[in-house]
Write a protein that binds this DNA or RNA. Structure first.
Lengths: 145, 145
DNA sequence: TGGTTATTCGCAATCTGTGCAGATTGTGGC
DNA sequence: GCCACAATCTGCACAGATTGCGAATAACCA
């Protein structure tokens, strides 16, 4: 995701307005590697700006995502998580607490499809990107069991 | 997933009953590579057995999943998809229509984490499995645009 | 400064999935 | 084949996440 300042420019360039609510959300997301969900963001945003609406959070997250500034992440735990890191990276997810960490992985280009059916699928589909998800248990969750 | 006959035995062995509803769901899933969601399954099941409850579909899918006979798949499109293929395989997903295809991939063991932070994450997490998801657009969706 | 137009906000509605309870039905033993 | 008991089925209410809508508000450009 670009910096709050750059986003301000980018929004105006698209005819979108830069409101205090949006600026706050920009700031809360900048450099955030916690992969927050809409309601976590709502909670922290509410602390700084009481009265801000959850609807506005969703709206802005959707806008940022469709502008390619955010990546929506479905970790299979109810709420969608948002990732301001749009580098080519992957994720490690704790199946117990839902913690998500960014990881950079080598060897992704070397992945090969095996069967004929796979080759066919590869031909039928136009692949945009490859996501790798490592699932497991984080240390804190392991110790509390 | 095991065959409907094997599942019948497996259920009884666990003290679970084999009802007509369950048998129907076993049959609808056996060899099914469409990765159906609960409500798609409900629709097809209803055709064969009018009056069957969506609740029963969910119940049985949950049971099969916790028995390890099904894999729950979150493709980021609202509903959970269920995969009776429990081999070590991966998926190609069409971002437009949500179509999911199974693919067998080589090179997964060769994936390496790059940065220090990644190595740390690897150390902190106990990784159970690695999922690879290829996202893109299927041929039908490409032609209708 | 003023007008136009995007935003915000709150609420209702949708969608997916689960909890509950009463009626029903498999199953194993006789 | 029949019984008793526990597991199931079903319908409904409910919870959580997200979106649609419309009136009031506020940003932005001239």
């Amino acid at each position: 995701m670009q910096s709050p300042e750059e986003l301000t420019t980018a929004f105006r360039a698209r005819g979108l307005k830069v409101t205090p609510q949006r600026q706050l959300i920009f700031r809360l997301l900048a450099g955030n590697d916690r992969h927050p969900s809409a309601d976590v963001l709502f909670a922290t945003a509410s602390a700084a700006m009481p009265g801000i609406s959850l609807r506005t959070i969703y709206q802005t997250l959707t806008d940022l995502t469709s502008m390619g500034e955010l990546r929506a992440l479905d970790v299979g735990a109810g709420a969608t998580r948002f990732d301001p890191n749009i580098d080519d990276h992957h994720h490690v997810i704790c199946d117990h607490c839902g913690d998500v960490r960014d990881v950079y992985v080598s060897g992704v280009e070397s992945l090969r499809l095996l069967s004929d059916a796979d080759a066919e699928a590869h031909g039928i589909f136009e692949i945009d990107r490859t996501q790798v998800v490592f699932r497991g248990t984080c240390s804190p969750c392991r110790s509390t069991r």
